[in-house]
Design a protein around this nucleic acid. Structure first.
Length: 428
RNA sequence: GCCCCGAUAGUGUAGCGGCCUAUCAUACGGGCCUGUCGAGCCCGUGACACGGGUCCAAAUCCCGUUCGGGGCGCCA
């Protein structure tokens, strides 16, 4: 007996015998006829049972969300409006579901995100929840494809590290045998070392940890960072790779999932490149022109970014950030060292990516350590790679969940994270 | 770190001093019934986070605890 998915049914001729495996979403028992709403990972079908000719198990005992195997004949001219119809011959409960369910999978009541995350596996059985992560997978696939096509090598660097990337305040401490270590907040230092290693162009997709006690809909304490670093390049090269990656990711989502997303209420627009660029100074002027007060060297508040974001359709770069706002490894602007060869990718008021040309001169790097109050001896393993012909280089780090949240217009980054880690949540 | 807010059946809610032996929906259990619908109708089970206080009277007001939501800061 050949197994089928719901999505394959419509290509079949009527009366073909099929076996489907999935879940019972709903059961409607009547005097002479029984309807079961069946769901697999591809869609919904109706299993129809005529009582007088049924010889199988007691269907009234089958609880909703039980995993089942269903065999019957496909009715091409079925009456069902919810999906393809199968005249059921055999139903096997592979594993029953308890009831009542801790949250509604198909009922017309919404659960709080709290309840949903507590029972995430059930929440994810809902198509509109599930589709987010299928889209996220395609998004990343499109980004990977673009980077790979542009000569980037995918690498994996340690997450348990001895020293902080940009200080020490916001790292999680980990006991590593008899030593105290940290969970890495960014692969930054390792990416740069790999540039000195001659890998030319590298990228990494991996977790980043931030021990910040933030409590917002756009921050997590563990998120997926897409990071690149490229040799013999500057911030402009990095920006071109970034807009190319974003566009490639989105167009992959659109071409492979556009229909499913449209059905669940998401309209995907592939952005035009190049993205507009505006400098920090221009941004300050623009925002001040709208009645907000900013001091030089201040970061923009969400309110101010909203003002700025209003003049762009979707993605835009803010470039040339003041050195005081940027980490030690950021290359100063050769024309004016108060500024840097840096950029943020924004989507309206939301920051998605931070990047820059990096300092490659070890002398300058040491000076920058000192100006940021860092001790160079904590970074000797890093600094050493700059002493033996480190190429000029640039790169960026992108928050995958944030990009996904923006793309699908989700109200909370937790909606774009399977098992989010926030200030309070460590389970499931 | 600072600041707001919340907790009522499995789920989501109404109630905000006495009319609460707490509303409604949905789920769940039972019954009737229908080829399509979020099917319908009838009946039933099921809840005030915890501890203290005020009051003749507390789901409702006050304090504390626990758990949680959100904003700012910081960032992806």
């Amino acid at each position: 007996m050949e197994k089928h998915t719901v999505s394959q049914l419509k290509a079949l001729t009527s009366d073909t015998e099929v076996t489907l495996q999935g879940w019972i979403q709903d059961i409607r028992v009547m005097k002479n006829i029984i309807f079961l709403v069946f769901r697999d990972h591809t869609g919904i079908a109706q299993l129809t049972v005529k009582r007088d000719s049924w010889k199988g198990i007691n269907l009234e005992s089958v609880s909703r969300e039980s995993a089942v195997s269903a065999t019957g004949t496909f009715l091409a001219k079925g009456v069902s409006k919810i999906g393809p119809e199968i005249l059921l011959k055999v139903l096997t409960v592979l594993n029953p579901s308890r009831s009542p369910l801790p949250l509604a999978v198909s009922d017309p009541v919404n659960s709080d995100i709290e309840t949903r995350l507590n029972h995430r596996f059930l929440d994810l059985r809902k198509r509109e929840v599930n589709v987010v992560f299928q889209a996220q997978s395609k998004l990343l696939w499109g980004i990977r494809k673009f980077l790979s096509d542009n000569g980037f090598v995918e690498v994996h660097t340690p997450k348990v590290v001895a020293a902080a990337t940009e200080g020490g305040a916001d790292l999680f401490r980990v006991q590593y045998f008899e030593k105290e270590t940290y969970l890495n907040q960014s692969p930054q230092l390792y990416k740069e070392i790999l540039i000195s290693a001659g890998l030319n162009r590298v990228f990494e997709v991996g977790p980043a940890f931030r021990a910040e006690k933030h409590n917002t809909v756009r921050h997590l304490n563990e998120f997926t960072s897409v990071d690149i670093e490229m040799a013999f390049s500057d911030h402009n090269d990095a920006m071109r790779m970034l807009e190319g990656s974003v566009r490639s990711g989105i167009s992959e989502v659109s071409s492979s999932m556009g229909k499913e997303l449209a059905e669940t209420g998401h309209n995907i627009l592939i952005p035009e490149i190049p993205f507009p660029r505006i400098t920090y100074e221009e941004s300050v002027k623009y925002i001040e022109g709208h009645g907000e007060k900013i001091n030089f060297g201040d970061d923009f508040s969400p309110e101010q970014l909203k003002i700025l974001g209003n003049q762009f359709h979707d993605f835009y770069f803010i470039t040339k950030w003041p050195a005081v706002l940027r980490p030690f490894y950021t290359m100063p602007d050769p024309a004016n060292s108060e500024f840097t060869n840096s950029f943020d990718l924004q989507y309206q008021e939301k920051e998605i990516t931070s990047g820059a040309q990096r300092v490659h001169d070890p002398q300058m790097l040491v000076e920058r350590f000192h100006s940021k109050g860092l001790r160079e001896e904590d970074f000797s393993f890093y600094l050493e790679s700059f002493m033996y012909g480190m190429p000029p280089h640039a790169g960026w780090g992108l928050g995958l969940e944030r990009l996904c949240m923006i793309l699908l217009d989700l109200p909370n980054i937790r909606e774009a994270t399977l098992f989010p880690r926030d200030r309070n949540r460590i389970s499931p």
